[in-house]
Amino acid sequence: PEPFSGGPGVPELILQLLQLEPEEEQVRARILGCLQEPTKGRPDQPAPFGLLCRMADQTFISIVDWARRCMVFKELEVADQMTLLQNCWSELLVFDHVYRQIQHGKDASILLVTGQEVELSTVAAQAGSMLHSLVLRTQELVLQLHALQLDRQEFVCLKFLILFSLDVKFLNNHGLVKDAQEKANAALLDYTLCHYPHCGDKFQQLLLCLVEVRALSMQAKEYLYHKHLGNEMPRNNLLIEMLQAKQT
């Protein structure tokens, strides 16, 4: 993994975000610990899909924990915090997965948050067509961001932009959120211009990738809803709860 690299030309906001970034090893250990706990009322070994659902739930819990430590977000009242997370939960999950694949750096397999590798040939053979298509489309974005040389500094800044991507009219504290949006955009622009001067439109290209993250997250939600309708989702699933929550 890349070290937390500061140095000249790294805006203060990005430096702070790098400090807040959880260690992948710690997240992995916590989630593995949770998955090894027996499920209440269902002592049998859960099916692979059930495990994936619990893994996604636990990943989202880590994301909520990150958001709660983020500047500006932690100053907001809980109502605004919920509105922001209800807007972007699936995008944050998709982007987290995408960045893990960029670090993984292998075209033929995907790396799960637990550290397990799954061959794409296995996905093709064992996952249904909806999940397979979602995985392939995600891999295209991974390649695109890899070609753009997305680095850790840009990743943390984009993640922060996703968290605050909602129109402020839906929030109580307009001022604080608008200020965060403007500062994060300015930080990303300054950083890309300073560190990638040969690639003048990197800032715009990164923002365009967020449009694809949004589209992928919509597709992922359609997949979850399909599984929910087929009674295939575990009970008390956090993602299904997020899916069913009233949107702004």
Partner: peptide, 23 residues
């Protein structure tokens, strides 16, 4: 059943509870 009043996701609300310190 997993939603509180006004369609609020109860688990998320619990995770954001001020009484729960972030890790």
């Amino acid at each position: 059943p997993c939603q509180g009043a006004e369609g609020r996701p109860a688990i998320l609300y619990a995770l954001l509870s001020p009484s729960l310190e972030p890790h």
